[in-house]
C-alpha cells in the first residue's frame, strides 16, 4: 500500500471522505460498511491501531461538543431523534478523520504533493507546500533553540513579561524567516531556479 501510486490513494481518500460526509443521518448500514472498509484498510496499511485511537481520542471531545451544538438545529432531528443525530455526526467524523490519518501514514508528503500536481493543483501552490514542509522543521528547531536560550538565562517572569518575551521571540523568528527566505532564494537562483520544480519522473 505504501508503494501504490499516490494519485489513487488521494482520489480514494477523497471519494471515501465525501461518501462518509454525504451519507444521510441514521443510515447505519452504509456507515457500518464504510467502517468495515476502513478497518480493512487499517489492517492492510499496518498503521498502529494504538496511535490511531490515541489521535482520535484527542479529537473526540471537540467533535462531540460541536455535534451537541449543531445537532438540535438539524431538520433530521425531528425524524431520528437528537441522540441518533449526534451519534451520526460523531461516527461520520471519526471515519473521515481516521481515513485522513491512514492516508498520512501510507504516503509521504512529497508523493502526495506530486499526486496533487498531476491531478491539476496549480504548480505554484504545490511548490510552496513542498517548500513549506521543508522549513517547518527548520523554523521549529530555531524556535526550540530560542526558547532554550531563554530558559538557559533562567528567566521566570510574570504573565505580562512573558507575553512580551514570547512576542519578541515571534518577531525575531519572523525577521529571521524573512532573511532566510532571501538567502534561500538567492541560492535557488544560483542553481537555475525559474519558478517551477522539476521532478525526475
Amino acid at each position: 500500500m505504501h508503494r501504490l501510486d499516490a494519485r489513487y490513494k488521494l482520489l480514494f481518500t477523497l471519494a471515501f471522505v465525501i461518501a462518509v460526509v454525504a451519507t444521510p443521518i441514521g443510515q447505519w448500514r452504509v456507515l457500518g460498511s464504510l467502517g468495515l472498509l476502513l478497518a480493512l484498510l487499517v489492517g492492510i496499511s499496518g498503521a498502529s491501531v494504538r496511535s490511531l485511537v490515541l489521535r482520535w481520542a484527542g479529537f473526540a471531545l471537540v467533535i462531540g461538543f460541536l455535534a451537541v451544538m449543531v445537532a438540535p438545529g438539524l431538520p433530521a432531528r425531528a425524524s431520528h431523534g437528537l441522540v441518533t443525530v449526534i451519534l451520526s455526526i460523531v461516527v461520520k467524523n471519526s471515519l473521515a478523520f481516521l481515513m485522513m490519518l491512514v492516508l498520512a501514514t501510507v504516503s509521504s508528503w512529497l508523493d502526495l504533493l506530486q499526486a496533487m500536481r498531476r491531478l491539476g493543483v496549480p504548480r505554484v501552490l504545490v511548490a510552496t507546500l513542498q517548500f513549506m514542509e521543508r522549513y517547518i522543521h527548520v523554523l521549529g528547531e530555531e524556535l526550540a533553540r530560542m526558547s532554550q536560550a531563554r530558559r538557559a538565562r533562567s528567566f521566570q517572569g510574570g504573565s505580562i513579561l512573558s507575553w512580551r518575551l514570547l512576542t519578541g521571540m515571534l518577531g525575531m523568528l519572523l525577521l529571521r524567516s524573512f532573511e532566510r527566505a532571501e538567502r534561500v532564494h538567492s541560492a535557488m537562483l544560483a542553481r537555475g531556479w525559474d519558478g517551477t520544480i522539476h521532478n525526475l519522473d
Binding site: V124, A127, T128, L129, Q130, F131, M132, E133, R134, Y135, I136, V138, L139, G140, E142, L143, L170, L173, L174, S177, F178, R180, A181, V184, H185, M188, L189, W193, D194, G195, I197
Partner: peptide, 17 residues
C-alpha cells in the same frame, strides 16, 4: 519566481508561530 520561497517560508513561520 520568488513566490515559492517567500510564501513557503512565511507559511512555515505561521505554522511554527
Amino acid at each position: 519566481e520568488r513566490t515559492t520561497s517567500l510564501m513557503g517560508m512565511m507559511s512555515a513561520f505561521i505554522f511554527a508561530a
